[in-house]
Design a protein around this nucleic acid. Sequence first.
DNA 1: TCCGTGGTTCAATAGTACTGAACTTCTGAA
DNA 2: TTCAGAAGTTCAGTACTATTGAACCACGGA
Lengths: 117, 117
Amino acid sequence: MRPLLHPAIEDVPVEAILHALSDPVRVAIYADIVKGSEHNCSTFLTVGDRDIPKSTLSQHFRILREAGLIRSERRGAEMLNTSRCEEVERRYPGLIGAIVKAHEIQTRAGRRSQRKR
Amino acid sequence: MRPLLHPAIEDVPVEAILHALSDPVRVAIYADIVKGSEHNCSTFLTVGDRDIPKSTLSQHFRILREAGLIRSERRGAEMLNTSRCEEVERRYPGLIGAIVKAHEIQTRAGRRSQRKR
DNA sequence: TCCGTGGTTCAATAGTACTGAACTTCTGAA
DNA sequence: TTCAGAAGTTCAGTACTATTGAACCACGGA
């Protein structure tokens, strides 16, 4: 297996970060990781009410990783993913916070409008 | 020609905004429009040092428009594009500001490293 | 009414993303 | 040790999205 790639934040264009977070599954995953607890990939085999195949999940993690958003470390058989938000914050202040907050706002609004139905 | 679609901000998912701004050409265009002046599309027939075909440009504007980021109005033969950032700001506070700022930081860093070469 | 300018639409092609199947790596049990 | 199982990755085929040239529409002015 090829080694995990963790680019320096300086080498990550904003576009890559926005692209990584422009997928509903990936923001959901990332928002969860940012909350602070360590996660392995299998935590996310279902996101919302969708089942995600593990090959897809693996790609999602790769994209988050290569956008400099998370750090993945092999721990035995599994993988521990932690957020790199301090680094991102240093380079692009306020960016991650605003996106995660926007995601929360949307999630709350979504739950409200679901209750109405 | 079909009428221009301007969704209500409430109907725009964050993912659409991030996706719209995850393209280098589109952020560049949007950053310019946010600065406040009105623009028609042809202003952007070259972005940076790339030539953009006008069909492509038209699609980029459509994506920005359908992400709720800009408002386009026909003025005679041309199109005036203005930013809807107050509305976006009301729904997703801090988001646009952080992204535009990140884009500036990157542009500055890019110019610096080009000078070094 | 015709031309030029500014945009859009269409359809073909190029480029990404998703996913099942096969594989690797590690752990724990027998 | 060996084997089964759990956690991920890789590959390759298919499905989706983006880009772009060509043809078109819409308006304004000569």
